[in-house]
Structure formats: C-alpha cells, structure tokens
C-alpha cells in the first residue's frame, strides 16, 4: 500500500493561483436561497491573519454545472473573507442520522504546514441540537465556535480563532 503525499504550507504567495471570482459560488448562474457568509481569522496573539486561503465545500444544494458548491477566498487586510453562496439544507449523516445545515471549511496559510478543517453551522437552526458532529462537543462554549451568527436576513458571520482563548474547534477527518 502507498502512503499519501505529505502536506506543506501554502506559503504567503499563494495568491498567484487566486481568482477572486471563486468566492462567488453563484457565478455560473445558480439560483436559489442566496446568502452571504463572512468571517474573520485571528491568531493566538489576537492578530488578524491577512494571508490565508479559506475554502468552503457544501453538499447541499448538490454541486452541478451551475453550482460548484466550492469556493475559495483570501483573508484581506482586515483578516476577513466573504462568500456568496446558496443556503444549505439538512444533510444525510451516517445511518439514519440527519446533519444540520453546514458548510465545510479548509484553512490554508503561511505558518500552517497542513490545512485546518472545520465547519460552519447556522444560528437558530433547530437541527443544531441533534447534529451528530456538534453533539461530539460537550462544552457549549466550544460548540459555539462553529455556529455563525446571523447578521441580517441573508448573511451570517463566523469568527475563526486559530489558537488560544475561544480557539475554534478543528477537526480530523
């Protein structure tokens, strides 16, 4: 059996492959429940992380020619990213379980030798209470690091802290 290739950092110059259009998952014409997802990334010293690549992937609505279900956005000078996408619905879990609506997130940056994986959930979703991943986190304050707060009718915001107080829950898959 072979062993998977090792990761290395994305480094500070990854913007050479950046296409800002990738942050708009509706650019190929998808229609539906349009939402905006924003976030801010900070490090263990409370400093803004201004050179990260944030990627999102969602399985609801399903990917199609009109909807890539995947996006990439840089964190800017204010440590912030912004995606336009479609609101996910519930997602099948293992067995008969149902997962709350969520978006998977990968974080790449200078100083990260391998990517960080996390999830974004939506405030006020009743299914959050029974979500099989959120349920693995006993401490409500830790669980809250994954739940984006609603900032307007169609926009949610998630603060991501790489290290220290209120450190985001990162996942191994």
């Amino acid at each position: 059996m072979l062993v998977a290739t090792s990761h290395q950092t994305i480094g500070p110059y990854w913007h050479l492959i950046e296409d800002p259009a990738w942050s708009n998952l509706l650019r190929f014409g998808a229609e539906g429940d349009r939402i905006v997802l924003t976030g801010t990334v900070t490090d263990g010293g409370g400093e803004l992380v201004t050179d990260a690549a944030i990627e999102i992937w969602q399985t609801s609505p399903a990917a199609s020619d009109g909807f890539p279900a995947f996006g990439r956005c840089q964190t800017d000078a204010t440590g912030s990213f912004r995606f336009t996408t479609l609101k996910p619905g519930p997602v099948a879990g293992l067995g008969n379980a149902q997962q709350a609506p969520h978006v998977a997130i990968s974080i790449f940056a200078r100083g990260l030798l391998t990517s960080l994986t996390t999830r974004l959930y939506f405030q006020d979703e009743p299914l959050n209470e029974s979500d099989p991943v959120l349920s693995l986190i006993e401490d409500p304050a830790r669980r809250a690091t994954l739940i984006a707060r609603k900032v307007s009718d169609d926009a949610w915001h998630l603060d991501i802290r790489l290290q220290g107080e209120n450190e985001t829950v990162f996942m191994e898959i």
Binding site: T9, D43, G44, G45, E47, V49, W57, Q58, T59, V91, A92, G93, L94, Q99, H102, A104, A109, R110, G111, L112, L113, L116, T117, R119, P132, V133, L136, I137, L162, Q163, G164, E167, T168, V169, F170, M171, E172, I173
Partner: peptide, 19 residues
Amino acid sequence: STGLRHPARPPLRIPQTVT
C-alpha cells in the same frame, strides 16, 4: 510562523459523512 497559528487543542475526530 507556526508559533501563533497552530491550534493548541487536539483536533476533534469526526465521522466521515458525505461532506
């Protein structure tokens, strides 16, 4: 650069779903 950027807590192992 890893100093303030690496998570201090171990990652949460989650089941692999369709996501």
